[in-house]
Amino acid sequence: MSALLDLDRVSKSFSRGGLFSTRRVAAVKEVSFALEADKPEIFTVIGESGSGKSTLARMILGIHTPSSGQVRLGGRDVTTYDRRAFMAEVQPIFQNPFEAFNPLKQLDRYLFMTAERFGGASGKTAAEEQADVALRQVGLSLAEIRGRFPHELSGGQLQRVAIARALVAKPRLIIADEPVSMVDASLRMSIVNLFGRLRDELGLSIVYITHDLATAYYISDRLIIMQKGVVVEQGPARAVLSAPTHPYSRQLRDAVLTPDSAGAFRAIHSRQAVATPGVSS
């Protein structure tokens, strides 16, 4: 069994403060996990803000160099990769599709550029063809996107274009950092379902970073839960979320508000308070 992605005791610390009072802040501490090459899966990283999940994503993408430990792609340290070869294997999707695209640039140009740089397309026709194939995989087509600017599309459509752009490079791994938190409620599930289809039909592995436990339960195969840079719990997604053992995981699970938690704060509402208005006008 060879590993597609392999994190070996990866840590990252940042220095904070001035010249005389420098402190080291550990953002990620000794995180290890591996994704198998021949078993595509959606691997979820859950954690609150400040838990180090985005730093972890940046290290996998080679944007940050780990302070210690190694991130290996196909057995090779990502810091030793040629960037262009690396980006053909691993592609990112970011949180806010409105910020990810330059508002003054037509969307199809992102697709063509990615096709030529990382997708191995030579010439305009090949790039257009690759862009169209990728857009059809996300339920759009080049005819709809050609010449359009970001403001002409909705958040859900833009996020699909962002996913199509990542697919143009024909990567083996996609790193999605909070991909649905800025997408409209009625469109969110179509993006999440799209990730499931990419895994099942294209055999892509996806590292899905989120703080939304419900979608993690819905779509992911395995997950890790991070708190302050440390992995506190890991395992098969549904097993872990159905019966979390670490106190922090339990706290997270109990804090999720769903339609079933109706009246969590309403129960204390008393009729007596209704009868006496607090302030007289």
Binding site: S154, L187, M189, S190, V192, A214, L241, S242
Partner: peptide
């Protein structure tokens, strides 16, 4: 129907039923 979709599309922990997004855009 829109309210029904909003409530029905929410995934829940402990429930593995397939949920669909709404077609089209706002």
């Amino acid at each position: 129907p829109y309210t029904r979709h909003l409530i029905g599309s929410l995934p829940r922990i402990g429930d593995t039923e397939q949920r669909e997004g709404l077609e089209g855009t706002p």
